[in-house]
Design a protein around this nucleic acid. Structure first.
Length: 636
RNA sequence: GCCACCCUAGCUCAGCUGGUAGAGCAACUGAUUCGUAAUCAGUAGGUCGAGGGUUCGAGUCCCUUGGGUGGCUCCA
């Protein structure tokens, strides 16, 4: 007999070799039905795996994250099974994990290209294989045996995987005539898989290395039942409506032009206004926090980019131009001018920290395949700042920046993920510098009380960094704020300050952005609000609508009053039905529609209607101005 | 940059296996003066992303190129 301990602390004495499945059954039929795997002493195992010794045992059900992940992993096997049964040796299998919201499987084929038209065929075969309810059986074989097995099947990628495994035996999972190398665990049989759908195909490099072969990745998703799958697909559909590229066109905010060039944003009046409002906000917030606003030129002599190291490390991404035999680089970053400002005179420790803020427009030649609406462009404006301070001040400066980020994200109502990246293998600077900077970043994060991830070795070559990521409508993550310590530039530009001891010292530099790139931020912002901008940044805050021509003159006057009071107001005095004008204003997502009929004209008021359909009490134009101002005072 | 797919009127899309382009909305004109999400009627609008090729004939097939979409790699 062995003793097993359940999560609630109760113990059971059972026969040696009892399986998690049997334990689940002994607890209850409901649990047994929901069970997809067991966790024995912390390790996920198949339901059918015999337990050989005393252990802590937990039953994993579909209701848990892990349960769903396992379910999708099994779905990936089912898809590979279906593909192999349809295409046989024309296609080789590689790997297929569960991912957020679904799973994928990477296939290699010399002569077959998967197309979305085949999805139904593959899904149909998956359904057949699921219906056949093939038991999914784990077996353990020696490395050599596994290599022989997969070589015989012509599965070169699997063979490569096994060769790289440093273990004497490997586990295989068999279902019907399909067998895959896999650590598992898996569902007991294919019949457990009820709802799945292939979503897209994409290229992916074998083992994520661009030097390797290009594989074909089929993305798909799976849910415990059809209703949940349907709900997920509907959610996706809804998210697509919030896509900033779609809303950007519909709300007439910006466009791209093939003639202008890829990745170059053309800001239309309303988009440019939105952008200006955000930039004004930024200037106010930076001045409040002791930053100095500075500006540098768009192009700087190539020699200076050599001094900074950009020419050496970043040339591929830069645009260059030559005039009068003098070569210039169009700036991809803003730091250079900031270095020159610091260097323009002697600095004392009493002058530090220096905080230079610039809404700096930069151009980078991003690879064509990575461009994506406003979220990845070639010309963009950063809310960039470089803080130069003494080593002693570093801690406080980083905390200040992090607080800044938190404040701003709270104003926009963003949730975000943070991660810290530490020293990479290829890097410069002393151990001491790295340690101090990393400690400063960590302690700022710890102080913030917010959770964060650690990316070991993922820092820049010149210093560690904190990245803050926001999600777009489709849950893709985009880096916005970043806080980076930099040891190279102060060195390369030989920046110094005179300390209390009268000696020259090297200042420490922090490079940071809060919103990141205004373009990217606005892209995410559009999706975040689904185009329904809060009043304080709405490019058009209100629109005056008359019911008939009879009120045109009065409406004109109201419009003028509001305009002069600084309200961003438009008018629609066309001879159209009120319902029609309201519909148009609604589609434009204008916060307030000011309806003016004979009643309002007689009383000298306007009747505001909010874009959610709710009406406010009629009020005078002056009262409306006061109302808008108070609504905007606290950003919300 | 790599893989796959896409590009037809301002927008959203039709156009079967090649036989010289169509709808809705928008625009414009006229009528309608109508109080909270679409009044009616009419008019105009496209060298089918660009260039080359195959063909008696190309929006439709092939090649090159620009742009986009989904990923991969990259992201100072």
């Amino acid at each position: 007999m062995i003793r097993i301990t359940l999560p609630d602390g109760t113990t059971k004495d059972v026969e040696k070799g009892t399986t998690p499945k049997q334990i689940a059954e002994s607890i209850g039929a409901g649990l047994a039905r929901q069970a997809v795997a067991g966790r024995v002493n912390g390790e996920m195992v198949d339901l059918a795996r015999p337990i050989e010794e005393d252990a802590r045992v937990e039953i994993i059900t579909l209701n848990s994250e892990e349960g769903l992940e396992l379910y999708r992993h099994s779905a990936a096997h089912l898809m590979a099974h279906a593909v192999k049964s349809l295409f046989g040796r024309d296609v080789q299998v590689t790997i297929g994990p569960a991912i957020e919201n679904g799973f994928y499987y990477d296939f290699y084929s010399e002569n077959h290209t998967f197309t979305p038209e085949e999805f139904e065929q593959i899904e149909a075969r998956m359904a057949e294989l699921a219906k056949a309810d093939h038991p999914i059986v784990r077996e353990e074989v020696s490395r050599e045996e596994a290599i022989r097995l997969f070589s015989d099947m012509g599965e070169d990628y699997k063979v490569e995987l096994i060769r790289d495994l440093d273990q004497p035996t490997v586990s295989l999972y068999r279902q019907g005539d399909f067998v895959d190398l896999c650590r598992g665990p898996h569902l007991p049989s294919t019949g457990h898989l009820k709802a799945f759908k292939l979503t897209s195909v994409a290229g992916a490099y074998w083992r994520g290395d661009e030097k390797n072969a290009m594989l074909q990745r089929i993305y798909a998703t799976a849910f415990p039942d059809k209703k949940e799958l349907k709900r997920y697909l509907q959610r996706l559909e809804e998210a697509r409506k919030r896509d900033h590229r779609k809303l950007g066109r519909e709300l007439d905010l910006f466009s791209f032009s093939e003639e202008a060039g890829a990745g170059l944003v053309i800001w239309h009046p309303k988009g440019a206004l939105l952008r200006t409002l955000i930039e004004d906000f930024e200037r106010r917030e930076h001045l409040k926090r002791g930053y100095d606003i500075v500006m540098g030129p768009q192009i700087l002599r190539t020699d200076l980019w050599k001094t900074s190291g950009h020419y050496e490390n970043y040339r591929e991404n830069m645009y260059f131009t030559e005039v009068d035999e003098q070569s210039y680089g169009i700036k991809p970053m803003n730091c250079l001018a900031h270095m020159l400002i610091y260097k323009s005179k002697m600095r004392s420790y009493r002058d530090l920290p220096q905080r230079y803020f610039e809404l700096g427009t930069v151009h980078r030649h991003e690879k064509s395949g990575v461009l994506h609406g406003l979220l990845r462009v070639r010309g963009f404006t950063q809310d960039d700042a470089h803080i130069l301070c003494t080593p002693d001040q570093l801690d406080g400066e980083i905390k200040g920046v992090l607080r800044f980020v938190q404040d701003v994200m709270a104003i926009f109502g963003f949730e975000y993920e943070m991660e810290i990246s530490t020293r990479p293998e290829k890097s410069i600077g002393s151990d001491e510098d790295w340690e101090r900077a990393t400690r400063a970043l960590m302690s700022a994060l710890d102080d913030s009380g917010l959770p964060y991830e650690i990316n070991e070795g993922d820092g820049a070559f010149y210093g560690p960094k904190i990245d803050i990521k926001l999600k777009d409508a489709l849950d893709r993550r985009w880096q916005c704020a970043t806080i980076q310590c930099d040891f190279t530039l102060p060195e390369r530009f030989d920046l110094t300050y005179v300390g209390a001891d009268g000696e020259k010292h090297r200042p420490v530099m922090v490079h940071r952005v809060i919103l990141g790139a205004i373009e990217r931020f606005i892209g995410v912002l559009i999706e975040h609000y689904a185009g329904n901008f809060p009043l304080w940044i709405a490019p058009v805050q209100a629109i005056v609508l008359n019911v008939t021509d009879n009120q045109a003159e009065y409406a004109e006057k109201v419009h003028q009053t509001l305009l002069e009071a600084g309200i961003r107001v438009k008018k629609d005095l066309r001879n159209e039905k009120l319902g029609f004008k309201i519909r148009e204003a609604q589609v434009e997502k204008i916060p307030y529609m000011l309806v003016i009929g004979d009643r309002e004209m007689a009383e000298g008021t306007v009747a505001p209607r909010f874009r959610d359909g709710k009406n406010l009490e009629p009020m005078s134009p002056e009262e409306f101005v006061a109302f808008v101002n108070s609504e905007c005072r606290e950003y919300h």
